[in-house]
């Protein structure tokens, strides 16, 4: 096995930050209607908290440097550095030349349920659904994640051409080591569960509430199912703590 690069991580800083969450000041709160997309700016040193409302729903999240959106989330680097899972203290890495953490997960309230398959909520590499997938399985065109991300980016003055790789939150999946194919399970999330990301620099986020719901319905059954989707709570907190900077 090839030894990977060893990136420094100040665990004490993030443990301290996570321990102070009750002292954070909420500076923004919004509920994204079910099945839609949303875009917002989050300043360095603030956190973005994504909260499940009513029931779990998969989210696709794109991340950009607010001052230079040509720096964005890089899933290839993410897989190499952090692996396919995202949970507390996972860093979300950006593209070269900076190749730096864009944000760091400081809270993840999910309690994973055991499964015989290599699946777990929050993944770094499963793309976003598009009208092509929905046409294939249902011959319909709902608001797909591509369209929702486009909607969110439009709120930020960006276009569909800025849609890049994304992370998949509240999406329980894994890659089968034998076949190399993805396997899926319904999300373990419950009402009120959240994941919280600490912005290492000023960031733009575009988020989509996936029309695939909580992952209970297999793609082959999409056409015959009324897949329920749920709203999303978006909250921004000022931590009062400046990022460490990179490198």
């Amino acid at each position: 096995m090839l030894t990977r690069a060893d990136y420094p991580f100040n665990a004490d800083f993030y443990r301290g930050l996570a321990a102070r969450r009750s002292s954070f000041t909420r500076v923004f709160e919004h509920t994204v209607p079910r099945g839609e997309g949303y875009g917002l700016r989050v300043e360095a040193g603030c956190t973005l908290r994504l909260v499940m409302k009513e029931r779990p729903n998969m989210l696709d999240l794109c991340v950009y440097n607010a001052d230079d959106p040509s720096e964005f989330y890089c899933s290839g680097a993410q897989l190499a550095i952090e692996g396919g899972r995202i949970t507390r203290f996972t860093r979300i890495w950006g593209t070269p030349p900076h190749s730096r953490p864009l944000c760091t997960v400081i809270a993840d309230t999910l309690c994973p349920r055991p499964t015989p398959r290599p699946t777990r909520d929050h993944a770094s590499h499963a793309a976003h659904c598009s009208p092509h997938a929905w046409q294939l399985y249902t011959r319909t065109h709902p608001r797909t994640c591509y369209d929702n991300l486009r909607q969110g980016l439009a709120m930020l003055g960006l276009s569909q051409r800025d849609i890049h790789d994304n992370v998949n939150l509240f999406y329980k999946l894994g890659v089968d080591p034998e076949t190399g194919h993805y396997v899926f399970d319904p999300s373990d999330a419950e009402d009120g569960d959240y994941i919280e990301l600490y912005a290492e620099l000023p960031l733009l986020f575009a988020v989509s509430i996936c029309p695939y719901g909580d992952g209970t319905v297999e793609p082959a059954e999409w056409a015959d199912s009324d897949i329920p989707v749920y709203p999303l709570g978006v909250e921004v907190y000022d931590t009062g703590v400046a990022p460490l900077g990179w490198p």
């Binding site: 690069a5 890089c74 899933s75 290839g76 680097a77 897989l79 190499a80 550095i81 070269p96 030349p97 900076h98 190749s99 730096r100 590499h125």
Partner: peptide, 10 residues
């Protein structure tokens, strides 16, 4: 999933 062959990673 390439994409990690960056100057920083090297």
């Amino acid at each position: 999933f390439g994409g990690s062959g960056t100057p920083a990673d090297w």
